[in-house]
Amino acid sequence: MKRYYVMGLFSNFEEAFSTISEIRQHAIPGVTVDDVTLKSPIEHPEIEEILGDRGSPVPKFSLFGAIFGAIFGFLFLASAQANFLTQPQGGKAIITLPSNIVLSYEMLILFGVLSTVIGFMINARLMTKRHPLYSEKVSLDQVGVMLELDEKNVDSLKELFKKHKVLEIREEVSQ
């Protein structure tokens, strides 16, 4: 089935947001706000209010990484110390808690950070090809609203875009 991608470029957030608001109120039947992708040069604090809370599992990755790092770190250090027979004593225990706490803490942060970055890469779909409708103007100063929709809705969407002073409309058909 053919899918149509249509992107409208707007000169500012207000126009883009009012377009999305109309889509949210079902200005075009069969098109919901979930089909909308907003492309912007900055992170706008109200994006989530307009698009709805789409959530982000990145903090979960951080939590997992941190817990893994701390536990793995401590066990790694303790088992290394326990198997290391000719280690210095200095009147101290073989598995020393203060040093292991310090090092496990570093491991907590290291693994937490790495896991967060991996989570970000996966969730933000980085390291994939850019969308064919990507416009360099988005990285400059324009706001793009992109929708994925059926052929029958394309024209009404363009009408909607034009109503909100769209600067440019681009479209793309995929198989």
Partner: peptide, 11 residues
Amino acid sequence: HYRRAHEEGGH
């Protein structure tokens, strides 16, 4: 043992 052995001499 690993926590207390240093009191007797370590390993």
